[in-house]
Write a protein that binds this DNA or RNA. Structure first.
Lengths: 107, 107
DNA sequence: CAAATATACCTTGACAGGTGAGGTATATCC
DNA sequence: GGATATACCTCACCTGTCAAGGTATATTTG
């Protein structure tokens, strides 16, 4: 059973930031890892993922650089910034908070 | 502290259905009760609320009728349908499920 | 060798839900 | 008479999601 993705809406940024807290990575890998982490129950659609990268970079929460792969397709790596870590802390708290509220409302 | 409402997006219908499971009510009252239930930490904006009512009625999850108030402003009451109860059960399960997934992803 | 698959990136346009801003009307309270 | 509370509604805009399309390289398979 896969979940209704609308429920995840608004958490995309937090998911990506959380992942990048553990070190730099690139789009394709991030997506794979997220699928794996959730036993293929959840994946970020590519378009959603790259949209989020643009958004996060524009707001200064992540930075990107091209890897210099000798072989294979080029990869664009992402780093989380200090502002990104701060933002993530906030988003995580909001998640904890909204979880309590929704549990209260959905009897 | 109030929460980022984007996190609630997609749960509006579930919140309303949950409320109506306990009996008929009308928009203004529902909104008040939700605020009260969450210690004013969460409210559905009016526009959101009425948009949701239209959506839920169009998809047959709720039905509406005008109350015959002798005094005061008229009220449009809403009843949850059998389909609505079924849908709510599903939405509640999805919430439980997505909660697990997000907790896994937001370390 | 050719085709298929996996890796890896990207953009565009459409859609859906949320919401600010605006509106209507009735009743009460000072 | 004016403010406030109750009670409803609509419209236009914004934002995030995502299906569908595209590019390019490397490996596997028939």
């Amino acid at each position: 059973m896969s979940i209704t993705f609308d429920l995840i809406r608004g958490h995309t940024d937090a998911i990506i930031l959380s992942y990048l807290c553990d070190g730099d990575s690139y789009g394709y890998q991030i997506n794979k890892d997220i699928m794996k982490a959730t036993d293929n129950q959840f994946e970020l659609k590519e378009a959603t993922l790259y949209t989020a990268f643009r958004r996060l970079e524009q707001t200064g929460l992540i930075q990107s650089y091209w890897g210099n792969e000798a072989v294979g397709a080029r990869r664009r790596y992402y780093t989380i910034t200090d502002a990104g870590r701060d933002a993530y802390t906030g988003l995580k708290q909001e998640w904890q908070h909204s979880k309590v509220i929704l549990d209260k409302l959905l009897t």
